[in-house]
């Protein structure tokens, strides 16, 4: 997975709270192998009529080439399905900007190169008014710039490192095998009951 330091792209707004993972990708699509692409499933039941055609009033349809999504609080709450992140990434998104995120969603996002950028509610609302423009996101400065707006965002330092280097968790553990083996032996000796 390639890392990234800055990204410039178009913004689109989804001014709804508590966008849960069941909305981001309904469960019925989750048996699909990743190689087939998940983009078409993004917000499927919000986006499409029963016959599968895209609704003209679907918020994301306003900017089909958007790569930055602005949303309201508690984005990605609900299940642990990483498929919710695949649907965003495969639709071309590199960042979601919101006042807060579901915990598991946010860590899944980072493991797939998608930035969960936390801003205040007022800042998210201000950005939603600028969706006609593109924005530039800088991971080094932790900053979003669009027009006259310059907004700082919160990001866990570990997550910043992972995004900038394109690392997922397995990459972080590569050099730790000895420490893991040592701990394993100690736990097996100290808490034999914990083994199956």
């Amino acid at each position: 997975m390639p890392g990234w330091t800055s990204h410039e792209g178009r913004m689109v707004a989804l001014p709804i709270e508590n966008i849960d993972t069941d909305q981001l990708i309904p469960a019925r699509f989750m048996s699909t192998p990743r190689s087939q692409g998940y983009g078409r499933f993004l917000l499927h039941d919000m986006a499409r009529d029963a016959d599968g055609s895209l609704r003209p009033d679907f918020a994301l349809a306003a900017v089909p080439d958007a790569s930055i999504l602005i949303a309201r609080r508690n984005f990605g709450c609900g299940s642990s399905r990483e498929a919710a992140v695949y649907a965003l990434v495969d639709s071309g998104f590199r960042a979601v900007i919101a006042p807060s995120f579901g915990d598991i969603f946010a860590s899944n996002a980072v493991n797939n190169g998608l930035l969960p950028a936390k801003v205040s509610e007022a800042e998210a609302e201000a950005l939603m008014k600028e969706v006609d423009h593109s924005a530039c996101i800088d991971l080094e400065r932790l900053e979003i710039v669009t027009g006259d707006l310059r907004i700082k965002f919160d990001l866990d330092p570990v997550w910043r490192t992972k995004l900038m280097n394109g690392w997922d968790d397995i990459d972080l553990t590569r050099d730790r095998a000895d420490q893991i083996a040592e701990f394993r032996d100690r736990r097996k000796a100290g808490a034999a009951w914990a083994w199956v």
């Binding site: 866990d156 968790d169 397995i170 553990t173 730790r176």
Partner: peptide, 22 residues
């Protein structure tokens, strides 16, 4: 606690998980 697919792969491969203490 619940984990995502990348973390599932990590636990399968290492029997460990990276976490920040909540």
């Amino acid at each position: 606690f619940g984990i995502g697919a990348t973390e599932v792969a990590h636990v399968l491969a290492t029997q460990t998980i990276w976490q920040k203490r909540p």
